[in-house]
Design a protein around this nucleic acid. Sequence first.
DNA 1: TATTGTTATACTCTATAACTATA
DNA 2: TATAGTTATAGAGTATAACAATA
Lengths: 163, 163
Amino acid sequence: MARSDTLPREAAWRDSAVATELSFLMARANALSLSAGNRALRPFGLKVRSYPVLALACDGLRPTQRELADFLRLDPSQVVALIDDLEAQGLVERQPDERDRRSKVLVPTAAGRRTWDAAKAAVAEAEVAPFAVLSQAERETLAELLARVAFPGEAEGEGDGPD
Amino acid sequence: MARSDTLPREAAWRDSAVATELSFLMARANALSLSAGNRALRPFGLKVRSYPVLALACDGLRPTQRELADFLRLDPSQVVALIDDLEAQGLVERQPDERDRRSKVLVPTAAGRRTWDAAKAAVAEAEVAPFAVLSQAERETLAELLARVAFPGEAEGEGDGPD
DNA sequence: TATTGTTATACTCTATAACTATA
DNA sequence: TATAGTTATAGAGTATAACAATA
């Protein structure tokens, strides 16, 4: 209709210089994963941004807001907003840190734990869609490579290799 | 200083449920790649969002705005803004499509080609930083896996497999 | 003096609807 | 009637600076 030769043209697009750059592929794959994630989390009142906050609170780490900001690479002021949202829904609580009265520790409520359980399962299912083109082994390889990129500091074992 | 046992604690964070989810790792790796990309492109008046538009214009495809929107998964109205920006910098031109007078075809100027050449090299260098933890072979594997996720429709050869 | 959480603000990105001109 | 480009607008995400309480 619009074009006489759409199929070879599509291949030309995919083989174009940008479309083969790692950063471009990463951005595009992430966009797909992100929208699938948000769709899966919406029923729980969560988003891709707030879900990790709830998850880390539920993981028994008793994180301070500062630790959450560092780990999630968010500004502390953004963490405030995310926790406000989760707290308004009754999913988490701010508790005073007895070791440092400036800090507040994030703790899940019972409802928060239930929501996280359900949301975690929904996310796992939602991941299936965008990554279904890969085999299980390929998904594991992808996760391993991404983890190294995402956490460049952390070595596999514990001794920091001198290179 | 803040915590008595920061090192084992870091491992606990990295091994937490969220931090091992594919979508989380993808988002985090993408964030690193994205900020490196924007930093590299700033000297050229480009961003991670506008760079692919210039690149596709320079690739000799004579794309219409609609095709750009489809391929980049952007709303047509966003493509307008990105092209406006590039056009204001004298990097691209809108040309009437002789086949369909509703459409406009995006063509690079001489300055646009020069900028793209330089920017492409800068992006290639910038990619080094976030992905430097991977070997060349691992980067290729990562690119191949991401490409399959990013372009699920397109088969490697040309026959679209059933299922 | 430095740090934790907070508020305020501005700027970018993203999504949606409506309008125009062509088909 | 449907499509390509455009405009306008509102919401979400992101970044920055400043402030109060505490270290």
